[in-house]
Computed example of a mutant assay.
Amino acid sequence: MTPRATTRPPARPRPGGTPPVVGTVTRGTTNPNRLRRMDRWIAVTHGAELRRAADPVAVDLGYGAAPWTAVELLARLRAVAPRARVVGVEIEPARVAAARPYERDGLAFRHGGFEVPVERRPHLIRAANVLRQYDEDEVAAVWARLCARLAPADPAAGSRGGLLVEGTCDEIGRRHVWVALGPEGPRTVTFATRLGSLERPSDLAERLPKALIHRNVPGEPVHAFLRDFDRAWAAAAPYAAYGARQRWIRAVRDLTADWPVTDRQTRWRQGEVTVRWEALAPRG
């Protein structure tokens, strides 16, 4: 990323000729179990890629003031890919020093930013709540930089390459929206929520990632999607007698008539729905 001088400090050089640290210190807000919905989705949708790799490396980029999310990511990935390793990367040196006592087999912490200072190209980069403080017009460059660091696709081996998962959630992980990107660029957008906390699907709009949050206005695809989702949710109100999960499933099933939903009922039951990026991408 090439930050604008008016809003971002220049990349900070490091001794020894290593690449400079790229990015800006975040607030560092974190909580245990905050990213559980994202982690579970990654384990299901990307687990086969991680198992296929000889040395699968995952990066928890911008893990925050405490290392809980990196510790949890390792446990969840190893449940589906026992060889997985996690590297927590933070731009604030004090946070790296505080995390070092938590290092163990398969878990390490390093100082860095969007340059992603790991030796091997990672098979996963998770960047949760990192771009929230950036400007919308900076997102594409950050995405491109991170995607260029991913493990490449290998069609002969049936591999689509590494995965970047970038998105936003609330403080205790009840509501998430994230974009999944491969080496080629954006693939999908996933909406995930604790259904008992939801009044209507458009409540998730406040957790749209930076690339979409300012596009929730009439005339933009993401606004139309959330409008249609609310209508489907209202039409599914009779299913509320069987619980919020059944209402969500019915609403998502109705959405599939007009929107390219990519997942199935097994994920809908978790309070998720995933849509192709092209359907929600900002106009222009």
Rank of each mutant, 00 (worst) to 15 (best):
T188P: 02
G196A: 02
P201K: 03
F225M: 12
R215M: 06
F225A: 11
A235G: 00
R231W: 02
A224Y: 00
A192S: 15
P183R: 13
R227N: 05
L226R: 04
P221F: 04
G196Q: 04
G185V: 08
R215I: 05
R231Q: 15
E184A: 14
P186N: 13
D230E: 01
L204C: 09
P209Q: 00
V189I: 14
T188R: 08
V189H: 03
P186E: 14
H214N: 10
L212V: 09
V189G: 04
A232G: 02
D228G: 13
A211F: 11
V179W: 06
F229N: 05
V179I: 15
E220F: 05
A235I: 00
E184T: 12
L181G: 07
R207A: 01
W233Q: 03
A234C: 01
K210C: 06
D228R: 07
E206N: 02
L204H: 02
V179D: 11
E199N: 07
D230Q: 01
L198H: 06
A180W: 02
S202I: 08
L181N: 11
T190G: 10
R207G: 00
L204P: 03
E206F: 04
P201A: 04
T188D: 14
F191H: 12
A192Y: 08
H214D: 11
R207E: 13
V222Y: 00
S197K: 06
I213L: 07
P218L: 12
H223Q: 12
F191Y: 15
E206D: 11
G219S: 05
A211H: 11
R227G: 00
E220M: 10
S197D: 09
P186W: 10
